[in-house]
Design a protein around this nucleic acid. Structure first.
Lengths: 335, 335
DNA sequence: CTTGGTTGTGCATACGTATGCATTATTTGT
DNA sequence: ACAAATAATGCATACGTATGCACAACCAAG
């Protein structure tokens, strides 16, 4: 039924190995033979079996990306990653971090992919160790795990947290709240550390009743704001650990009839496309995802190429972006 | 280096075939043997080679989804599709529709995937024909191509276009503009046809100078509005062929200092998550993507199972969603 | 005319699992 | 106690490509 390289070989009057070599551009095959084989292959509508090739070459030219599909950020990452990989002739397979561990492990360690990009591991995940043990090339993206020997590409989240705090302080805010990310992720911790660090440095006290931890999602922002604003001494500004949380917060503020930033200033982190939309104009911290992905793919490529050495950590600089949501309070509510 | 089923066999004192059967739960293997083999396999940290299995079984348990990564809608589709496939123990590989044809074809027809979901084909794409010729199970999602024999799952775009028009008419609009999608897609055409059809039925003339065709993206909306509103007789309402276009239009209106819907009413199509956000409150037409994906996966599963028959077309009903952007004009500008 | 080098092809086998069929051990029926 | 049925396992091979090595043909140099 299906046409194989043997069929092509027979029709072209050569051996199967010659067909394989001719079609793959092996220089040891005569020009005339290459032409004939190519003609016959086209004639028979022959397409090499990817499955057989994968087994024979011990490579699939496929990369798995482990992501959290509930976090809208992944769409941005995947879109860019896809092109980066395509340039190097790699395919992309998606693996959701929320699946059962067993399943995830078999997907990344069963030889079905040449490498793995991890963008969703929490600090205590067993995945990095597994990948190392099995010798599967892997890179951590947007996260890192201490003690692992894997390469990591991250943004300078600590500096970004500090930059966000600085923006709010400059706008005159002193009573500042924070909607932070999960403490189980390096991203969450670093952004928090940078933010707290700068406030402390500036001698501004952070009221812990105005600090909430939660997931990196819309609902965290949306559900936290009402409680915060109904307190006795509500904040005049809110640091959100990423843009999604910030968008949730802004929407909640809108529902409560609060003006942003007049009644409540908001600042995010990531600089999603939406943040730049006129109707949003979210002040945030720009993360160079393109650069991060580029490094990640480069590092992964080196590992796949056989490079073995200590795990490297590439930290990408971030840039504060002043838009319209971090401005001063105009209610006199501030200290 | 890598541990194979032969290694496990030797260590357990059985043959390779017994290992294979034991680990896959073949009932013809004795309980005691299964136990011993499983123990040894765990001991040796054995993981079956996916590549070898793929070749041997002529199946990869992998589905390719061909999408347009520039359209934010794909993120929503993929997220849901992933879970649907996971339930049936299938993996997901992404294929960008914007890549070069050669590459796309080899990805879907090289035997690397068990089936294909096409969500980005234009009406003249050669992909459906290719897949049929090679006998690769495939389903069209959110699009259809006339004359193809593939199964298709779509929304009732025609009815949706009509519903949108009806909402605008009920709010009193008579001078209506439209930002339509590409005429090369069934989605674009059907939504347009439904919209035009209902206006004609209601005896309302559509001024062709207020109609613009473009891509299903943010910029289409954002760039079209200024030109439309600067004309001699600007529209009081705008039908956008999808929510992304509508969001672009709303942002543009915001930049021009126009109130929505007071100065310009806007209506979208798809009902993305964002449309329901309080700050957006976009009136739109709900498309049941979950249901569509469910049918698509079901149909595809049947095809993979060997079912062969005429191409089926499943049309899913849509629901108008009245939010805050389609209301009446309050400037007296209307006819 | 011989030797050594080059070029182009074929042979044989590896990749690691799944599975049809034959084989042996065990149980059941009479 | 013997034939027949059943249960458990091993043997051999298929899946379709890539590739190391041997080989044949041809050519140039001595």
């Amino acid at each position: 039924m299906k046409v194989t390289s043997f069929d092509v070989a027979k029709a072209a009057g050569v051996s199967q190995s010659t067909v394989s070599r001719a079609l793959r551009g092996d220089p040891s095959i005569g020009a005339e033979t290459v032409r004939r084989v190519a003609a016959v292959a086209a004639e028979l509508d022959y397409v090499p079996s990817e499955r057989a090739r994968d087994l024979s070459t011990r490579s699939t030219r496929r990369i798995a990306m482990v992501v959290d599909l509930d976090n809208p950020l992944w769409a941005l990452l995947v879109r860019r990653l896809y092109d980066q990989l395509a340039e190097r002739d790699y395919r992309l397979t998606l693996v959701a971090g929320h699946g059962d561990t067993q399943n995830i492990e078999s997907q990344v360690a069963g030889g079905g992919v040449d490498g793995v990009i991890l963008s969703t591991v929490s600090l205590d995940s067993s995945l990095p160790a597994l990948l190392r043990r099995r010798g599967v090339p892997a890179v951590l993206l947007h996260r890192y795990v201490e003690g692992t020997e894997l390469d990591s590409c991250v943004a300078d989240n600590r500096a970004g947290g500090a930059a966000a705090a600085r923006m709010l302080l400059r706008a005159g805010h002193r009573r500042i709240g924070a909607l932070l990310g999960p403490a189980t992720t390096s991203t969450g911790r670093d952004r928090e550390a940078g933010f707290r660090g700068l406030l402390a440095e500036a001698g501004v006290e952070l009221d812990e009743t105005l600090v909430r931890y939660g997931r990196f999602d819309f609902d965290h922002g949306r559900e936290s704001v009402p409680a915060l604003m109904e307190g006795a001494a509500p904040p005049t500004a809110l640091f959100c650990a990423n843009d999604i949380i910030a968008l949730g917060a802004m929407n909640s503020a809108h529902e409560l009839g609060l003006r942003v930033p007049g009644d409540l200033a908001v600042i995010g982190f990531d600089d999603l496309e939406q943040a730049a939309w006129p109707t949003v104009a979210l002040s945030t911290v720009h993360v160079p995802f393109d650069d991060m992905l580029h490094s990640a793919v480069t590092l992964l490529g080196e590992r796949i190429g056989g490079w073995s050495g200590a795990g490297r950590l590439v930290i990408h600089p971030v840039t504060p972006v002043e838009r319209g949501t971090h401005g001063p309070n105009d209610t006199g509510r501030s200290v």
